[in-house]
Design a protein around this nucleic acid. Structure first.
Lengths: 137, 137
DNA sequence: TTGTAACTGCAAATAATTGGCGATTAGTGT
DNA sequence: ACACTAATCGCCAATTATTTGCAGTTACAA
């Protein structure tokens, strides 16, 4: 019993649905619950949306995924491992780009020093225009 | 007819509801549609939520207000004049603090230079812990 | 005034998310 | 291998947030 599945290590039961949701989040990078469900259904059609929501919540509780409010409508989820970058959300085309967090290191430090505000980089969403949209604007 | 009301200047009809919504947004600093409605109802009880939603949208179209997705659930609106600061959203207590945009100037510049991403500072929401929550944490 | 398009209120329609509950199933102990 | 129990699932009704259709009202120009 040396090999413990990562989900079991967190005290969670290892169900196919759960595993599929986690895998989907990892493969998608970032996605809404709806998108995760769609992805999962490609291999497991019967899965219920509620199940996806509940598993996302559960997985978030144990720290395997996180959610952010990138834009309109819904939250988007991404794997915890992925939390090494910022999300650059294009307000025009909706594309989500990435940038390493250290581009913000200085900024974060300033906020901490001057405002006592401890920025949560994992919850960072930045709006603007992506390079592509910027050109044709 | 020298004095044109700001709303009329934008080509909008000057209705009491519209004016109240705009005033409420300005007084509240930032608020959800729900909160705006509540505020407006203090002086004009009959106003309908749809009307608030529609006016916020209309006012946003002409550039008098803007919205951001500060947290969960809903968008929050604020007056366009107010757009000289960043929003520091506390993930714990929900408080929304402000910081002048120039603390981000450097950061914004980096994103522009390195990623071609044109950051929209008016749509900036930063998550973390506010000073108060940070202490007792 | 009077006409007309903009605007409002209301109620029903959507969309997104959550909660209840009986049926199922993973994981434990035998 | 078998039974047990709580975790989890699927289905579906309930919320919550926002949007839309439409008929009645109103701002404002002529």
């Amino acid at each position: 019993m040396a090999e413990q599945h990562e989900l079991r290590e967190k005290g969670l039961r290892l169900t196919p649905q759960r595993e599929l949701v986690l895998t989907a989040v990892r493969e998608l990078g970032h996605a809404t619950p709806e998108e995760v469900a769609e992805k999962v259904r490609q291999t497991h059609p019967g899965i219920n949306l509620s199940t996806v929501y509940r598993n996302l919540e559960t997985l978030e509780n144990v720290g395997l995924v996180q959610h952010t409010h990138l834009g309109h409508g819904g939250a988007t989820y991404h794997a915890a491992e992925e939390l090494t970058h910022l999300h650059l959300v294009c307000g025009k085309c909706g594309a989500v780009g990435d940038a390493p967090i250290d581009v913000a290191a200085n900024f974060v430090q300033t906020l901490a020093d001057d405002y006592g505000f401890k920025t949560d980089v994992t919850h960072f969403a930045i709006y603007g225009l992506c390079a592509a949209c910027n050109v044709k604007n």
